[in-house]
């Protein structure tokens, strides 16, 4: 019983981390029709920046590191969008290849700077202990990750559904030409959404640190999972990213625990099923 409970929490925590990665990817794809293949690399870059900050400035808490890393990665993402991707506006394939190239550069750059050994990020002390609930043991930090992911989802939901900025973003996702025609500053919103998505990925990388560590290949491990989440949930949908993340988080965690040989195949079954039956994804309105 403890096994099932522990794995359930693990899968929820992993699903939460996936959400921090895939929500930004989905938002950027939905708004800009841009499959940002640097997203996994931004997640990893975030984790490494966090690890560096915590080592270089002892006393930096994980939360401070996540905040700083989120801002740093957001700035990086904003510059990337404004000065590189913008030059290829309208050329979807060119943009994908560009993000792929930059992902390779970031990935190899991190290996060059931080070396090949995994760097674990330390858990905040007050969360580095198990919690006893209903007779079961829960690692407190994983509970915190789940809570944070839910908060992030609620925050994004409020931003998109209740604010003027969110209304403008949604208008852009639904009909770009119309949004432009009614005077929405589409260009500024592109950059903003790219920054936002990058920030969540960067901070997410730091929050993943105590569970996954910062290691070379983290980007390559996470990006495909984010792709599956987005294909499963539907592009441009935060709800889809949320539901998809927890589905994939659960399948991945239980798959590795129960059927390690075939975990990767099982992971793709729901995606294949969804593509076959509902190509727009569970919550998507547009075709991928």
């Amino acid at each position: 019983m403890q096994f099932w409970v522990a794995q359930t929490l693990n899968s929820l925590a992993f699903g939460g981390l996936l959400f921090l990665l895939s929500s930004g990817f989905s938002l950027i794809f939905g708004l800009m029709r841009l499959a940002n293949l640097t997203h996994g690399a931004l997640f990893m870059l975030g984790a490494y920046i966090g690890a560096y900050l915590m080592r270089a400035f002892p006393g930096t808490s994980l939360w401070m590191a996540a905040l700083a890393s989120g801002i740093a990665v957001a700035v990086f993402g904003g510059l990337l969008e404004r000065f590189v991707l913008r030059r290829l506006a309208g050329n979807a394939l060119g943009q994908v290849l560009l993000t792929l190239g930059i992902a390779f550069i970031i990935s190899d750059g991190c290996l060059l700077v931080f070396g090949g050994d995994p760097i674990p990020l330390s858990t905040p002390r007050w969360l580095a202990r198990p919690v006893f609930l209903w007779g079961f043991i829960f690692p407190a930090y994983r509970l915190a990750v789940v809570v944070l992911a839910v908060c992030a989802a609620l925050g994004l939901h409020i931003l998109l559904d209740r604010t003027r900025l969110g209304a403008m973003i949604r208008a852009g996702v639904d009909d770009m030409a119309m949004a432009r025609a009614v005077g929405i500053p589409v260009s500024a919103i592109f950059t903003l959404v790219f920054c936002l998505g990058s920030a969540i990925a960067g901070a997410g990388g730091v929050l993943a640190g105590p569970i996954l560590s910062a290691y070379p290949g983290l980007d390559g491990d996470m990006l495909p999972l984010a792709l599956i989440v987005v294909i499963l949930g539907g592009v441009g949908s935060i709800t889809g990213a949320f539901v998809g993340s927890f589905i994939i988080g659960a399948i991945y965690t239980f798959g590795i625990a129960l059927l390690p040989d075939l975990a990767y195949v099982i992971l793709f079954l729901p995606m294949i099923l969804v593509i076959a039956i509902r190509p727009n994804g569970l919550f998507g309105r547009m075709a991928v």
Binding site: A35, V96, L262, I275, A287, V288
Partner: peptide, 27 residues
Amino acid sequence: RASGLGFLMITLALAQVVWGLAYRWVG
């Protein structure tokens, strides 16, 4: 089932299945 970027993402994801299998199906 998809086209354009969707096709690209799905082919990438599917290739990862084979990659993951090669790494994990040690037997």
